[in-house]
Write a protein that binds this DNA or RNA. Structure first.
Length: 489
DNA sequence: GATTCTTATCCACAATGAG
DNA sequence: CTCATTGTGGATAAGAATC
């Protein structure tokens, strides 16, 4: 698995080595071999389509031994941003596992390609800043006096750029108070949200805001994953005491994705002591995770109680109004650019899972439109965003359909499986079968089974019948439409 | 209530496609 | 090749419609 070249301690040896050319060549071969392994794994993980679209075009750059940073090149600004956004963590982790010389990865546009200025969507919109999560700079900046840029906080992720709605206002207010108030009323603050709902954004924002009011504050920001890496490194090199001392010197501790700490008993222990020490001094602690503290199984109870003793603020998934507001706010960044209202509406309505995807979709659309010189239109959106759309189509179950249809026609749920053939129950049953075929990927036999074990040809008959009826009967069409609307929201 | 008509259902079987 | 899915035509009996 771990491929090691014959040149282990490169940092020292490479500079004195006479045969430098040879070294470089060997290294390039090693990296290429590692990359072959990694991309094999990713191919399995991501599936063929995603792999060929995003991973395959990646070209290996050089490894900088001083910083341990490996460059990965993509042919376009857009694909670089995309890969950065979606796969940075994965790639980074895979490389760290494959080669101990690689400590960070950097995803860039291939220097050979001309950078299209118009398409430079980064920077303004918070898209493609996953690297900041890594906070590789956080630990390195400990020596200095908390200079903002080196803390690893993404400068675009501030409270000002955080769009609020009813689902996240609570968490935002809590975060703001954590950053502003002189004495924190609660600590730690625990942010709970599914991926892509903005917890990382809030974490960064707290950092920035606190730094504004306390310019000399010492802030620690990192993901729990990163925490683990640092921890293990300190452990290996017998620098634990130093490591502990550093940790306790911070005024504000921001730890992202603490669910990753599950199962690492020793790191948990260390985190626990750090929390206690910082809490006693009235320091501020903020944690973020994708689940409630109680749901972090594998974390010891003492740590759990520390995590939940402050305020646990839940960020609900963005609702449609918030999603629209986010898009509008991003849109002001492309000021002269016209994006029709129905496109915004379409995006806000369909991509519901993940805000990153939402913004990513908008970026992709705009980039594509500019590349091809087309107008941004609803049609273009439907064509270009098929991957995002299919991933976001809410998984509607047959049970859900049956419930909704029964409610709509005011009949009992049991009629879906009953043997009765009265019009009043057969029609709804057939409508439900039709909807099951249209809205789910289930096969005819499977649908038949869900309707009292009916034959698959019965389902086919029902689907065709309702299709036919929708054409000729306006009432039926209206019924189906309103059912579709109900089910898809 | 007895009748004819309509059709929801099941069955047997062919064609097709994924693994 | 095997298995599951889709699709066709036919038979039957449960309801609907008509008297």
């Amino acid at each position: 698995m771990i491929r090691r070249g014959p040149h282990g301690g490169r940092d020292q040896s490479a500079k004195q080595e006479g045969a430098e050319d040879n070294m470089e060549e060997r290294e390039a071969i090693d990296l290429a071999a590692d990359w072959a392994d990694i991309s094999q794994g990713l191919r399995k993980d991501l599936g063929h389509q995603l792999f060929t679209q995003w991973i395959k075009p990646i070209q290996l750059g050089k490894l900088d031994h001083d910083t341990g940073t490996l460059d990965l090149f993509l042919p376009t600004e857009f694909s670089a941003t995309w890969v950065e956004d979606r796969y940075h963590d994965r790639l980074s982790l895979a490389w760290k596992i494959a080669s101990s010389d690689v400590r960070h990865i950097s995803i860039k546009v291939h220097p050979g390609r001309r950078k299209i200025a118009d398409l430079d969507l980064r920077g303004q919109d918070g898209f493609g800043h996953r690297a900041a999560n890594d906070a590789s700079l956080a630990m390195e900046s400990i020596g200095d006096d908390g200079f903002t840029a080196s803390v690893g906080l993404d400068p675009s992720q501030t409270f000002a750029s955080f769009v609020t709605g009813s689902t996240n206002i609570l968490a935002k207010n809590a975060a703001e108070r954590m950053a502003k108030a002189e004495k924190p009323q609660f600590s730690p603050l625990y942010l709970k949200a599914a991926t892509g709902q903005g917890k990382t954004h809030l974490l960064h924002a707290i950092g920035h805001s606190y730094l504004q009011t306390h310019p000399r504050a010492r802030i620690f920001y990192c993901s729990a994953e990163r925490f683990m890496v640092e921890f293990v490194q300190a452990l290996k090199s017998n620098e634990m005491i130093e490591f502990k001392a550093r940790l306790r010197g911070f005024d504000l501790l921001l730890v992202d994705d603490i669910q990753f700490i599950i199962g690492k008993a020793s790191a948990q222990e260390e985190l626990l002591y750090t929390i206690d020490a910082l809490l006693n001094e009235g320091k501020r602690l903020v944690f973020a995770a994708d689940r409630a503290p109680q749901a972090l199984d594998g974390v010891e109870p003492r740590l759990l109680s520390r995590l939940s003793m402050g305020l646990v603020a839940d960020i609900q998934p963005a609702d449609i109004e918030l999603r629209r507001a986010i898009l509008e706010s991003k849109l002001t960044k492309f000021a002269p650019l016209e994006v029709p209202g129905d496109v915004i509406d379409f995006l806000a309505r369909t991509v519901s899972r993940n805000v990153r995807e939402l913004v990513g979709g908008l970026n992709k659309l705009i980039a594509y439109a500019q590349l091809t010189g087309q107008e941004v239109s609803l049609q273009l959106a439907e064509e270009q965003l098929t991957d995002i759309l299919s991933a976001n189509r809410r998984r509607i179950t047959i049970d859900e359909i049956q419930r909704t249809v029964c409610q709509f026609y005011r009949i009992d749920r049991s009629e879906m499986s009953s043997k009765r053939r009265a019009r009043a129950v057969v029609r709804p049953r057939q409508v439900a079968m039709y909807l099951a075929k249209v809205l789910t990927p289930r096969s005819y036999p499977e649908i038949g089974r869900k309707f009292g074990g009916r034959d698959h040809s019965t389902v086919i008959h029902a689907v065709r019948l309702i299709e036919d009826l929708r054409q000729r009967d306006a009432d039926m069409d209206g019924d189906v439409r309103s059912l579709l609307r109900q089910l898809e929201s």
